[in-house]
């Protein structure tokens, strides 16, 4: 029998994979993928909690997280394309225009 803890452990593992991606990758597109992984892992945890407590609030939050992820991708990719057109690469280490 699968318990709630199994789903939470899975979500934690996926969140760690996503965080590892955010820490290690310096390509901005890869960073976006890692962010998607983290958002999805949180969705799994929310839906699992929603199922085991027989409460719909978790599913509602997962639903709004999906909406936020969609708009984040639209805005983020717009900015990324703009940056790539100006500078020719999307490496995180080149984003140093604020450096004194």
């Amino acid at each position: 029998m699968i318990t709630l803890e199994d789903y939470i452990v899975l979500a934690t593992l996926l969140f760690m994979i996503g965080l590892y991606g955010v820490i290690v990758r310096t390509n901005l597109l890869m960073l976006f993928f890692a962010t998607e992984i983290m958002l999805n892992s949180v969705n799994i945890a929310l839906v699992a909690i929603s199922n085991y407590y027989e409460d719909l609030t978790g599913q509602m939050f997962a639903f709004f997280i999906i909406a936020i992820a969609a708009s984040e991708v639209a805005i983020g990719l717009g900015l990324l394309i703009l940056w790539y057109k100006r500078h020719g690469n999307i490496d995180l280490n080149t984003l140093k225009s604020m450096k004194g």
């Binding site: 709004f64 909406a67 936020i68 969609a70 708009s71 984040e72 639209a74 805005i75 990719l77 717009g78 900015l79 394309i81 703009l82």
Partner: peptide
């Protein structure tokens, strides 16, 4: 959320399509 998606769509079009 619907308004937010609309704002994101307009922002994406303005930034990527400029």
């Amino acid at each position: 959320a619907a308004v937010m998606l609309l704002v994101a769509m307009v922002g994406g079009i303005v930034m990527a399509g400029k």
